[in-house]
Design a protein around this nucleic acid. Structure first.
Lengths: 218, 218, 218, 218
DNA sequence: TATGAATGAGCATTCATTCAT
DNA sequence: GATGAATGAATGCTCATTCAT
């Protein structure tokens, strides 16, 4: 293998190691207690290495957040695609994927959101992501309504949908007083009711991910 | 007034000054950028004073979080009581109060939640509070359903209710892409639909708080 | 004493402690080996104190350099004034003061000069100082020449004067292969020759500084 | 060519590359900002190579200083030799060569001097060099005086000569407030006056160096 | 009681050096 | 011989906490 290619591979590997170590560290010790020390320990590298692959600790944190979001986004896209062409089924898939399983790094997102409040760059990133998800939801709802000749307040319905998901996810992350199956059921029932569909026809179990299509690894 | 009582009053005053200064500092500079320095500046006291009234900065932060929650809780109770004896109206009031106005310290809560993830004491506190709110919601729903001879899945409905509120609040805090009136409307409409009531009969405007019953001051 | 005044005194005292500690550290360990650690040790304070009185280590170094220059400048002014009104005697005094005695912090200046090469602010400071000294020399030479009805190339003579002094000082600092008396003699003889004066009439010994008019202390 | 000889050549080439890169780096970035990184970049080699040819960064810096001095020394010798057999002309040549042209690495010398203050080996090296130059000056002055039947204070005159040169060089390096032609003129005039010679007979222009005898290359 | 000067542990970052390839 | 990835000691800086006044 050519040296240049090999180097690029090493760089990507190391960057990934550090990103995953960062996520592990935040999950394990919390955002505020995650130091270069803990991150490098979790990454299995020495303290000085961060400087080789990231401009600063902040840069690494940002990269970790983007990585996490990208993985979750990719996973969501896959789930939606796997649901087939029907916009209603796609909506349900989009609603359930967040609660598909005990997710790694679930707490990390909350830490990042808190940080985003005083970090314009992070906030911008988050807002773009959520705006996209809401827009995608609106498109699916529009099509599902059209197929049923229904008139639906798309904007408000999409808002309900996304914020119900976020609210359920938030409560589950903080409280663990209800389980993921309940979340899935509530989301499915709400969306079914919106479109006058029978929930019984739409299972809350997610299609099992086949081996080799991981989401966030590490 | 006896000296002992006077001292207790001073102590309470000082603690309150510091707590409000803490909330102001977090709102102004963010959680991570709030130092003993910024907190004491906002409180109008000298840096060394924290040690007299709190065990540590963490202790003060904890107290500030509890204070904030207590105020919000009190405010909610007042709003519910002001709604009169009808359980359904009380439910609506409970649902709308969170979005009553541009709330001070709205970001602080998110910061504290993030912190709670790695602070068992804080987390416990939060869980108790939310459990109580959900229990209260369940009681109101039970009564409202009984009055209407309706059968409702109380537990799941209460969960929907609380998490919809949290989700709307979370999105509003992070994104500001929709306004509080929208939040109030969505919550009212959902609860009205649950009990087959006409939203038109239940305005989303909150009763004006009379002078002298402020919530979080400072 | 009023508290405010007291505080200002403390601040000045501490700043001075740190400045003198800095000079001592540089003299003792060299510029490159002077760390916050060594400076604070020499100053007799803890490592964190620098942050209270100076913006950064660089800021302290700058202040130390300015302090040193100010002291040397003050000392030179006093020596010149003590020489009386005769411009020629004032010239000689200005020429000899640099070599008046084994000066503390003699090496520090060289360190700072080296640093100035890549520090525009420091360089600017140095250039202003030297320009002023050269201008003052030119004025004295102009008057001394006028009194003697002599025509002298003032600009070049002033340049010779200042650079001869610098050259002798530099060699003495680096080599110690000749003594200060030799420096004084060479400078005096050169200036006497320039104005056709008999060196024998102008001793190279400096008037003894009376107690209480120290230069760089510490 | 035998392999051993070839290797020695490679070693010398590499060492020279690194030495010149060091000088370039110091000139470009300053002494304090010259890291192994910048030096190797300037040298066109990889970071790890220093370890193969020098014991340490300090060792390389030392070698660079010695190299620079050796080049300057060689250049001075050539200039003196080119001035012919007349000791007076040789003196003038020795005095002018320092200001012959905008010299590369002019700032480097000052950096090294500052370093020498806390580096005995460097200091020793410098002292030997300067002692030799002073001794050579004394020999030339002795011969020039003898030819003219003059009595001159050789030691002090040589001291004036060397330190005047150093002082002019120092001021020029730090201030750039006068030019090299002025330096040459002042040195020439001083030495002419010492020996009662007419400066008009001794141009300050240096004989042009023929191609192929550069001094510090790189 | 209240102050703010002082402390020093903890932090991110830099960088000369090492060493597997 | 040459590379550059990896190391970790050292540095400047921040800041919660202490304590003399």
């Amino acid at each position: 293998m050519k040296r240049a290619i090999k180097r690029v591979l090493t760089i990507e590997t190391r960057r990934n190691d550090l990103i995953l170590g960062t996520l592990r560290s935040i999950e394990k010790y919390g955002y505020q207690n995650s130091t270069v020390q803990t991150i490098c320990e979790e990454s299995g590298v020495s303290r000085g290495l961060i400087g080789h692959y990231f401009e600063s600790k902040d840069d690494l944190l940002m990269a970790a957040f983007q990585h996490l979001n990208a993985e979750l986004d990719k996973e969501a896209r896959l789930a939606v695609r796997a649901a087939g062409p029907d916009p209603f089924r796609r909506l349900i898939a989009a609603g359930l994927i967040t609660f598909a399983q005990e997710r790694r790094y679930s707490q990390v997102t909350l830490h990042f959101w808190s940080t985003a409040l005083s970090n314009p760059k992070l906030l911008e990133h988050h807002r773009n992501l959520w705006a996209r998800f809401r827009a995608s939801t609106e498109r699916l709802m529009t099509r599902a309504a059209a197929e049923r000749n229904m008139e639906i307040d798309i904007r408000h319905s999409a808002l309900m949908f996304t914020q119900l998901i976020d609210g359920l996810w938030l409560g589950w992350t903080l409280e663990k007083s209800y389980d993921l199956e309940t979340c899935r059921m509530l989301v499915r029932d709400w969306i079914c009711k919106l479109f006058n569909e029978d929930p019984a026809n739409y299972p809350t179990t997610m299609p099992v991910r086949e081996e080799g299509s991981p989401h966030v690894q590490g």
